[in-house]
């Protein structure tokens, strides 16, 4: 079988070393990881090529016209960041609100909550 090999490069951000890691993928499977100096690098690279995850931080509107900074309580798939931000653009929160309070649930169908990152009286 002549499966095409895909080569991906990932800059590791686990530590300040910033290793440039090469990942070879064949038929959707990782066949080789090189350039990393530690196992954490390999894990990071694996996630990055399979399903990269990011914490989304943005703002939503408060009923008083001001902005409330928010974040997803956990990382969500990078591919869904724009969907999430679009969904959140319609959210208007009524104060008071406490830091850490959930202001939106299951953003972009990820099952992840969006929480306030500051309090507002």
């Amino acid at each position: 079988m002549s499966a095409t090999t895909e080569k991906r490069r990932v800059t590791c951000i686990v530590c300040p070393s910033g290793c440039r890691i090469n990942v070879e993928i064949e038929g959707g499977k990782i066949i080789e990881i090189s350039g990393n100096q530690c196992k954490r690098g390999a894990d990071y690279a694996t996630t990055e090529v399979t399903q990269p995850m990011r914490v989304l931080t943005t703002t939503v509107r408060l009923e008083n016209g001001r902005l409330l900074p928010v974040k997803t309580s956990h990382p969500i798939p990078k591919a869904l960041l724009f969907d999430a931000i679009k969904e959140l653009s319609g959210v208007v929160v009524k104060p008071p609100v406490k830091m850490g309070q959930v202001v939106y649930s299951n953003v972009a169908g990820t099952g992840v909550d969006v929480v306030a990152t500051r309090s507002w009286d």
Partner: peptide, 15 residues
């Protein structure tokens, strides 16, 4: 304006 002022939805009560 930033996005939240362009598309508006209903008010979500903070629980």
């Amino acid at each position: 304006r930033t996005k939240e002022f362009i598309e508006t939805g209903g008010v979500v009560d903070a629980k």
